[in-house]
Amino acid sequence: MGFKNRDVISINDFSKQDLLHVLKVAKELEKKPNDGLLKGKIMAALFYEPSTRTRLSFITSMEQLGGRVIGFASGKVTSFTKGETLWDTMKMTENYADVIVVRHPLEGAARLAAEASSKPVINAGDGANQHPTQTMLDLYTIQKVKGKIDGLHIGMLGDLKYGRTVHSLTKALSHFNPTFYFIAPQALQMPKSYLEELDRLKIKYYVEENLFKVSDKLDVLYATRIQKERFADPIEYEKYKGVYRVDEIDRSLDNTEHAAYFQQAANGVHVRKALLALVLGKKE
């Protein structure tokens, strides 16, 4: 499927070939920044809730390719869209922009936005549902650090129950013959529906409570921060910290060459540049 005019709403809409293609274009743009590629193009960034990191990443990506940015960040929403529905705002914005990036606190908002807009829409996060550019960026980082994506042993650590990024990345990696290790206390383990899906796809996985039992098997450890609020009982959180040595992992990783997360910001720009260029038809 071609990418021109395509919406980027959910990682579930992308095949293995699609994902590899995005990564390939991202790599090209990283090697050879194509400064004027999107000259004359306008990206609208409609952020209905704050996410400074994601917003700056999209704006930087567009500007580095020579395009311009309009839109609003939350707080200024009212002056731009006073009392308007998302649908109406999209209908208005499509007159001004060539591509529209939407961040919204409600799940499904990006899909509805895409249905309203004749211009391509990129989902920059819709509530607890999807954040596909984050997932593509995670794949890009893994590919860059490991030199491949296929056949890796991947540990997922942290809040696996509610972690949107974990769910999306699990889904995306399922195309690449992985072995998963889901490492979390029972209360925060992967939802059953995801494990059933892996069973159906005949993908190997292990459910583990203790990181140190499996750490020597892992090629990649994808760690998400546990939010204290997830624990009803603060004592449970302290126990969790004890067992998983949260702070210790944080600190010890900072000093190793394995920690890829400092590359994430730069990688995010390469991937988002690739997507913008693809949906605007400036890259094949």
């Binding site: 529905t85 649908w87 919204h104 409600l106 799940e107």
Partner: peptide
């Protein structure tokens, strides 16, 4: 939709 945060429960659609 059973999800109270679903856009379909918050905006006419």
């Amino acid at each position: 939709c059973s999800n109270p945060n679903c856009i379909t429960n918050n905006e006419e659609s």
